[in-house]
């Protein structure tokens, strides 16, 4: 349990790792927008290439990144199949590629399925590389707090949310360790978590969950007292040890994303104008 690391943070030394987390949040959002802007084969090819370019830049092994894609394979397959069967080419002279019974598959459907696949793939890889793989959860919390600070003016408790995130992140390993201890203790008393029907196994978890909750509440109480003793009184007038600073690389990163969006829009327009291949 000591070696437990949360999230998917993958330590490496790359530009993406060194970028300011706020810049990365902005880039991730922009990248998602870009993936939705794609309209034709060329822009999708560019999107596809860019996802793999990001993997190269991040210096994270392809194998590691594809692991998170694997988790979504069912959704991806489902949407792709749906597109293949549902899309009907209404253009004049469009002939179905395959036709039997009530099923008609058009070339357009195949293209659409491929587009959707690329879009999902790019979004997963893009957000993963900008955020979870290259940014520690705590840096991400800092970034969100900083980016959402304007919302505090309309009474959104931004600081409180960030504090809750920090405390949650701090206590996840502690509570996991405790769960293991309680499980061992119950096993030593003859508890059996691995055999029997599902209902029986679920019931066996009760003697773990109850002490865990009791202890979590006690911890929360003690922590609150300790925080009060350390003069905690909300976000007002607080300073921060770690101050986020934008560097040249952050502006460059954002510039690249803008150029990327511009390129996609250009390809969309050119595609529409000259009727290149398929358009969504």
């Amino acid at each position: 349990m000591k070696g437990f690391a949360f999230g998917q943070y993958y330590p490496a030394n790359s530009v993406l790792h060194r970028m300011d987390p706020r810049a990365k949040v902005i880039c991730a959002v922009a990248y998602i927008v870009a993936s939705f802007l794609c309209k034709n084969t060329f822009s999708f090819v560019l999107l596809f290439v860019s996802a793999f370019a990001l993997i190269l830049i991040s210096r994270i092994p392809l194998k590691v990144v594809l692991r998170s894609v694997r988790a979504l394979i069912f959704i991806m397959a489902f949407t792709a199949v749906l597109n293949i069967f549902w899309i009907v080419d209404t253009a004049e002279g469009a002939v179905p590629l395959v036709e039997f019974w009530i099923i008609k598959i058009y070339t357009k459907g195949l293209y659409h399925a491929a587009f959707i696949l690329v879009r999902i793939l790019a979004m997963v890889i893009g957000t993963g590389l900008f955020l979870t793989y290259t940014t520690t959860p705590i840096a991400l919390t800092d970034a969100l707090e900083s980016l959402l600070r304007p919302l505090a003016k309309i009474k959104v408790p931004v600081h409180a949310f960030a504090m809750m995130m920090t405390i949650a992140l701090r206590f996840i390993p502690t509570i996991m360790e405790e769960t293991e201890k309680i499980m061992s203790a119950q096993k030593a008393r003859g508890a059996d978590f691995t055999t029997g029907s599902l209902a029986k196994r679920a019931k066996a978890l009760i003697p773990i969950i109850i002490p865990l909750f009791a202890s979590a509440f006690r911890r929360a109480d003690e922590l609150a007292t300790a925080m009060e003793c350390r003069c905690y009184h909300g976000g007002e007038g607080r300073t921060k040890l770690r101050i986020l600073r934008y560097h040249a690389r952050d502006f460059l990163g954002m510039l690249w994303i803008i150029l990327f969006i511009a390129a996609i829009v250009t390809l969309n327009i050119l595609g529409a104008r000259f009727g290149w291949l398929y358009t969504m």
């Binding site: 959860p137 705590i138 920090t166 405390i167 992140l169 701090r170 502690t174 006690r218 911890r219 003690e222 922590l223 007292t225 300790a226 925080m227 350390r230």
Partner: peptide, 11 residues
């Protein structure tokens, strides 16, 4: 306080 775990706030 007594319990070292329950007074540390940051990660």
């Amino acid at each position: 306080f007594q319990n070292p775990d329950n007074q540390l706030v940051a990660t």
